[in-house]
Amino acid sequence: MNREALKKAVEKELTRSRWEHTLRVMETAAALSKQWGADPEKAELAALLHDFCKFWPDDRMRSLIVKYRLPEDLLEHNKELWHAPVGAEVVREELGVTNEEVLNAIRYHTSGRPHMSLLEKVIFVADAIEPGRRYPGVEELRSLARQDLDRAVLQSLDNTICFLIERGQKVYPLTLFARNYMVEAVKERTQPKTKEESL
């Protein structure tokens, strides 16, 4: 499918407000790509497709999790997680998108994961800071994304985990693993090395 056909396919699956969100994520992802050196075409494609299955019925999503042999623990956690890993498989099979980088950016845009690629980080953050987002701390996150993408990823993970804890909900393990990995990655990059380490 060409880009225009993909846009039509996605728009058909989404509500008007979610389609507008998708367009804003595309713009934000393109800007972040330009700043941080990711591939802007891949970023726009992943952003376009990231919510493709967002409004599919739970039963359909559940059956696709089983069909595609996705991690079974998804079924034990918030349904908001499902559309990302399911979406990656569906856009591969139904829309013919085969680029693994793009598919991973879709797959992990809600949960994050350890060792996220630059493209995955761009989509993860773009989804959280696009101009239509309104939640406590979003302005700080937007500012951070302009200064340090890794710290923005970490802050977004922290925000998600705190949000879930405050509401008495379970935190998906992959999100905790992603957060712990980013803590170490940011610390390693920003802390000065000792004399022994630099030898």
Rank of each mutant, 00 (worst) to 15 (best):
M182L: 10
Y135K: 09
V97R: 00
D127G: 06
S143I: 06
W36C: 05
V183W: 10
K12D: 14
E130Y: 05
V122I: 15
V66Q: 07
H83L: 07
N78Q: 14
K42S: 07
E101D: 15
K79S: 13
F163M: 07
E27V: 11
E120C: 04
E44M: 08
P136D: 14
A145T: 05
W56T: 03
K42V: 08
L95N: 06
V90N: 01
L199E: 10
M26R: 02
T98M: 09
Y181M: 08
W56D: 07
E4F: 14
V10I: 06
G96V: 15
E184V: 09
A128E: 02
L48S: 01
H115K: 11
N99P: 05
T194A: 12
H115W: 13
R134Q: 14
E197Y: 05
E120R: 01
V186L: 14
E184L: 11
M61F: 03
N159P: 05
L81V: 11
G137L: 05
L32I: 07
Y108S: 04
P131N: 09
K170D: 08
M26C: 14
S33Y: 03
E89C: 15
G37S: 07
V183M: 09
M61A: 06
L164G: 02
V66A: 10
I161E: 04
N2H: 08
Q191W: 08
K54P: 01
V97T: 01
W82T: 01
A88W: 00
K54C: 08
K79W: 08
G168D: 07
E41F: 07
E13Q: 15
Q169N: 14
K193A: 09
